[in-house]
């Protein structure tokens, strides 16, 4: 994957198609509920775009670019933690 110009402009990932978060809105419990209820096996995986580190380069990853392939998406609590 070619290195893309990723500066500090996009510090975090975002859901593709989601409206830009209003200030303070992302912490609202009501919004979380909406997201959680959308996750089910057999349903579409939410598309997202996020900055990434990959083998020495900074890139951007968009889930829908992986259509046609099997993907394992793993979340974990943090770098430099123990497990």
């Amino acid at each position: 994957m070619a290195e893309k110009a990723i500066g500090c402009a996009r510090p975090t990932g975002s859901v593709v198609g989601a409206p830009p978060a209003e200030k303070g809105e992302s912490a609202s419990p009501g919004k979380e509920e909406t997201h959680v209820s959308g996750i089910l096996v057999g349903r579409k995986a939410p598309d997202f775009i996020a900055p990434a580190y990959h083998k020495g380069d900074f890139t951007q990853v968009k889930l829908s670019d992986y259509l046609g392939k099997w993907v394992v998406l793993c979340f974990y609590p943090g770098d430099f933690t123990f497990v």
């Binding site: 975002s14 859901v15 992302s26 979380e32 990853v61």
Partner: peptide, 16 residues
């Protein structure tokens, strides 16, 4: 493999 930055947990939130 790519290691994604999910500051503020936007992607994690979408996946519950």
């Amino acid at each position: 493999f790519p290691m994604l930055a999910d500051a503020a947990g936007h992607v994690g939130s979408a996946y519950g």
